[in-house]
Computed example of a mutant assay.
Amino acid sequence: MAISTGSGNAEVLGEINITPLVDVMLVLMVVFILTAPLLNNAVRINLPKTATTAAPDAVKAVTVSLDGEGRVFIDKREVAAEQLEQELKQLAAANPELALSLQADEAVPYKPVAKAMAAISRAGISKLSVLTATGG
C-alpha cells in the first residue's frame, strides 16, 4: 500500500493487520470456555477433612463412591445399593488382588457407609482404602 507523504515520494507501509487474528483468538477462547466444564465428568463428592492421609497404592484401585444424595457409584458408574455386593463379587472374581478405595460425601450418614463397607467385606475384598481430603 502506498502512502503519500506530500513530497511526491511513495512509501510502502509494511504493517500486519491483527484484527482477524484477534477475532480467531476470541472464538477459540469462547469454545474453550464452553467445552471445559463438559470435560470433567467426575462424581461430585465433598470429602471429609483429616489431618494426614496415606497415599493410595500405585496400583489402580476401583473407587466406590457414595454421594450426598444417597447414590452409589463404582468408578463413576451408578449401581443400586442392593446390587453393590454382587457387582463387587464379579470384580473380585475377575481380579483376586482387587484393591478398593471408598469415598463418601461428608453429608452422608454413617449407616450407608457402614453398609457399603459390609458389602465390600462380604464380597471378599480385603484391600480397602478410605479416601478423605487433606487439611483438617
Rank of each mutant, 00 (worst) to 15 (best):
A114V: 06
E87D: 08
Y110H: 08
E82F: 01
P56T: 07
A94W: 09
P112T: 01
E106V: 05
F32I: 14
A123R: 13
N41S: 08
A2P: 04
K49A: 15
V12C: 03
N95S: 13
V62D: 09
P37T: 07
A99K: 14
N40A: 10
D57G: 14
N41I: 08
A99Y: 04
N9G: 00
I3K: 14
G124K: 06
A55I: 03
T134M: 06
P56S: 07
N40K: 09
V31R: 08
T52H: 13
K127E: 03
V31K: 11
Q103G: 02
S129A: 14
G8P: 00
E97L: 13
A118R: 04
N95C: 10
Q103D: 04
S101P: 04
L13P: 02
R122V: 15
A93V: 11
V30N: 05
A104K: 00
K49G: 09
M117S: 03
I120E: 00
L13Q: 11
V12L: 06
L84A: 01
L91E: 12
A51H: 03
D75F: 11
D75C: 06
K89F: 02
A107I: 10
A94R: 11
V72E: 01
I3V: 11
A104P: 00
A99W: 04
L84V: 01
A10C: 06
T53I: 13
P48A: 01
D67Y: 11
V59N: 11
Q86K: 15
L13N: 07
V72H: 03
F32S: 14
A92V: 07
V64C: 05
N40Y: 11
A114K: 05
T19N: 12
M25S: 09
G6R: 00
D75G: 11
V72S: 10
A92H: 14
T5F: 00
K49C: 10
